[in-house]
Amino acid sequence: MNKITGLILLSSLAVVPAAFSAPVGTLSVHILNQQTGLPSPQVAVILEKQQGDGWATLASGKTDDDGRIKSLFPQEQDMQPGVYKVTFKTGDYFNTQKLGSFFPEIPVLFTVSRTNEKLHIPLLLSQYGYSTYKGS
């Protein structure tokens, strides 16, 4: 390697830390309707981070036709360790299907332990019950 190549390499490394941000798919969600066995499309989902005694909204979106949001966390920032909450607006989803539901929304609180830790939160949903877990 000559001096010019070495300088170019060193100068490019100087900007690498600024390039770190949450990779695509750092936080994904998926909703499956247990009653039908089908994905739940067009469900509004809100992502918040705990800030002291309150919550700061970071992002929101709607599930696609496969019941997924493949990348909910904003890609322009790092997902830092802390307590987060994903709220699934399930009441609105069931109302559009002209069905009642016991849960108007389902908040799922979780802890991020490493910066940009890849996380997946699946929700198995019915009108009167749900389950969730840490997916991969």
Rank of each mutant, 00 (worst) to 15 (best):
I46N: 13
V86L: 11
V108I: 14
I31M: 05
V43D: 00
Q51R: 10
V43L: 00
N33I: 02
N95W: 04
Y93H: 14
E48W: 08
V83T: 13
A44Y: 11
T90C: 01
Y93F: 06
Q50A: 04
Y84F: 03
A44K: 05
G67C: 03
F94N: 13
D66Y: 07
R68T: 10
Q97W: 04
Q50H: 07
P23L: 01
G37F: 04
V108S: 02
H120E: 14
F73N: 02
K118G: 05
E105S: 01
K85D: 08
T115D: 13
D64V: 01
A19V: 08
G25M: 15
L27N: 05
A59F: 11
I46C: 03
G82N: 09
L47R: 15
K85W: 14
P41N: 12
G100L: 07
F103C: 00
P81M: 05
A22F: 11
L99C: 05
L125H: 01
P122C: 02
S113N: 05
Q97F: 12
L27A: 06
L99E: 07
G54F: 12
T63P: 00
T57H: 13
K62E: 06
N95M: 15
H120W: 15
I121R: 06
Q127C: 03
W55I: 03
Q51F: 14
L27T: 12
F88Q: 00
A19Y: 07
V83N: 03
S126T: 07
L125C: 02
Q97K: 10
S28H: 01
I46F: 03
S126E: 06
V86S: 12
D65T: 10
K49R: 08
Q51I: 08
S21H: 11
L123N: 01
A44D: 14
T26Q: 12
Q35L: 14
K62Y: 03
D78S: 07
P74I: 02
S60D: 15
Q34C: 15
W55K: 09
G52L: 11
T26C: 11
F73D: 06
R114S: 15
L72E: 08
V86A: 11
Q34M: 04
F102P: 03
G25K: 05
N33P: 03
G100F: 15
A56W: 13
A56S: 09
S28T: 02
K118W: 10
